[in-house]
Design a protein around this nucleic acid. Structure first.
Length: 522
DNA sequence: CAGTGCTCTAGAGTAATGAA
DNA sequence: TTCATTACTCTAGAGCACTG
């Protein structure tokens, strides 16, 4: 009479307590966060899980046990109070550095568990992997548009310098926000502008003057962010992110005044912060025109130009193909398809993205084009296995799979899919897509960093990395994902400015390989 | 009444990055 | 080499509206 239970946050706490107490439940599979919570290791959580009832705990992907991770909390608790409980830990990439490995070994052995915890080494990566470095030069149009954005930043910067003149310390810092010397211009990232702003708040007394200076500094940082999107990810991504910001600022009603905060242009109501600030400040208002002119030029010939033409959300929705009845539902107060303005904006941009990706004339960033080239040659020469494409951004991953579909889908009679984490895509959909990919329904799958851990993907032979991954361990995980049935090919697409990140990743990878090849057992 | 789907918040980790 | 900061990812959990 074998019984198993899956436990996660969506299972009610009362029910979880019941399952823990049920002697017929022989196997409980739980998320780490929830298990730590139920053990009472998280502040404010009541302990309902007593490990002395269990004879063994298995930790999968044990390399996550770092810092204050829930695995660390659980292992420390087991070491302190549950000596009789066996522990089995699994990982293909136990550590990135020797220090990480030593920390992990201490966590497992401690001082007194030495005899009770064994370490087992399993080779999971027997097939050879080929890492291919693909330098990708920036195209003239990207350079042209990024130069225009940079000029806007220069203007804002010049005025910020004037404003900071009475304060030599601050003036020096402001001067360093921009560097146009040499071949590669540079705009300070937002951590720099944020730090500078707090310094200004401390040292400048006269309020109106101070706020004006602060807003100029923020504006330099925000323009810098768009500049980075354009240069590093592509025209589509620039249009998508800035388009959303414009829509939030100008096409939806803004309720109430907002206090001055640093730009958070990612999602939610804060999206409108930047353009609202420009609108409020008389000196900055002309820059709205300059920035939207660049947006107009980049979006020329694509559906994204309607973002500027439409005067309100409804008009924009109609232009992008939302039916009038759907709009009526929205106006009636959410009883129909759309629950909020957010949902409508999301839908509008999904349509814009899809129509852009179907446009045969449109050419995006050289990175995107290179991905299409690689997938195309894979299909043309009928190479074995399928392809995973990795991007750092969800919208970008969607765009890639749609562009592939638009350019190659009909030609070769194939489809492509995307997977992402729970914030963007339900687990069920993601699981189905991965299963379809594994079954060979899709020759290529675009993904966010979500794919890095914990998914078994048979049949993948090739990986294309658009952006260098956040973690070297992720690269190592990927190496295990592709090429299980033969040689695995990994394409590292590299922009001129991405060289350093690549070299660092390669060095770490080598170091990690040495640690894996080590024998752990004494 | 239980299940589903959506939205929002809080909190965790990591790589990239630049400066000391 | 070390440190601080940012942007990004993920998850859990609560609340809400809807459904069968």
């Amino acid at each position: 009479d074998f019984k198993k239970a899956a436990l996660h946050g969506n299972v009610a706490r009362k029910k979880r307590a019941e399952i823990y107490g049920d002697s017929r439940a022989l196997l409980c599979v739980a998320t780490g966060q929830m298990a730590a919570r139920d053990m009472g290791l998280v502040k404010g959580a009541e302990a309902i899980l007593d490990l002395s009832q269990f004879s063994m705990v298995i930790f999968d992907e044990i390399h996550q046990a770092k810092g204050n991770d829930c695995y660390v909390l659980m292992l420390e608790e087991i070491r302190r109070h549950f000596g009789g409980c066996k522990v089995l830990c699994l990982s293909a990439t136990p550590a990135e550095t020797k220090r990480d490995l030593d920390n992990l070994l201490y966590l497992l052995r401690g001082n007194d568990l030495r005899e009770r915890v064994g370490l087992i080494k399993v080779r999971v990566d027997p097939q050879p992997k080929k890492m291919i470095k693909v330098p990708v030069p920036l195209s003239p149009d990207i350079l042209y548009f990024s130069k225009k954005l940079y000029e806007v930043a220069v203007c804002l910067h010049k005025r910020a310098l004037e404003l900071s003149q009475p304060y030599p310390d601050i003036e020096r810092e402001v001067r360093a926000l921009l560097n146009g010397e040499g071949d590669s211009p540079w705009i300070a990232p937002e951590n720099v502008t944020k730090r500078l702003v707090s310094q200004v708040r401390r040292s400048v007394q006269y309020r109106a003057w101070r706020d004006n200076l602060i807003e100029h500094i923020y504006a330099v940082g925000a323009v810098g962010r768009y500049w980075r999107y354009l240069l590093g990810t592509g025209k589509f991504f620039f249009l998508d992110r800035m388009g959303r910001d414009l829509v939030y600022a100008f096409k939806v009603a803004i309720r109430g005044e907002r206090e001055l905060r640093r730009p958070k242009l990612r999602r939610g109501s804060d999206n409108s912060w930047f353009f609202n600030m420009l609108r409020r400040n008389g000196e900055l208002r002309p820059f709205i025109g300059r920035i939207t002119a660049i947006y107009r030029e980049v979006s020329e010939g694509s559906g994204f130009s309607s973002v500027l033409k439409a005067s309100n959300l409804s008009e924009l929705a109609i232009e992008t193909g939302v039916s009038r009845s759907d709009l009526e539902d929205l106006k009636r107060g959410g009883s129909g398809r759309y629950k909020s303005g957010d949902a409508l904006i999301k839908d509008i941009f999904a349509r814009l993205r899809a129509s852009l990706s179907r446009d045969a004339e449109w050419r995006d960033h050289p990175l995107t084009e290179r991905i299409v080239d690689i997938v195309e040659s894979h299909l043309r020469y009928d190479r074995a296995g399928s392809i995973i494409v990795e991007s750092n951004f969800y919208e970008d991953a969607l765009f890639i799979s749609e562009v592939l579909g638009g350019r190659l889908g009909e030609l070769y009679g194939v489809n492509f899919c995307t997977v992402a984490g729970s914030q963007y895509m339900g687990h069920r959909t993601a699981r189905e897509n991965i299963a379809g990919f594994a079954a060979g329904n899709f020759p290529a799958m675009a993904s966010t960093t979500f794919i890095g851990e914990g998914h078994h993907i048979p049949g993948a032979s090739t990986l294309i990395i658009k952006h260098q991954p956040h973690r070297a361990s992720q690269l190592q995980q990927f190496r295990g994902r592709v090429g299980r049935e033969g040689v695995g090919l990994i394409y590292n697409l590299l922009l001129p400015q991405g060289e350093r990140a690549f070299m660092v990743n390669m060095r770490r990878l080598k170091e990690m390989q040495r640690l894996i090849d080590r024998t752990f057992v004494d």
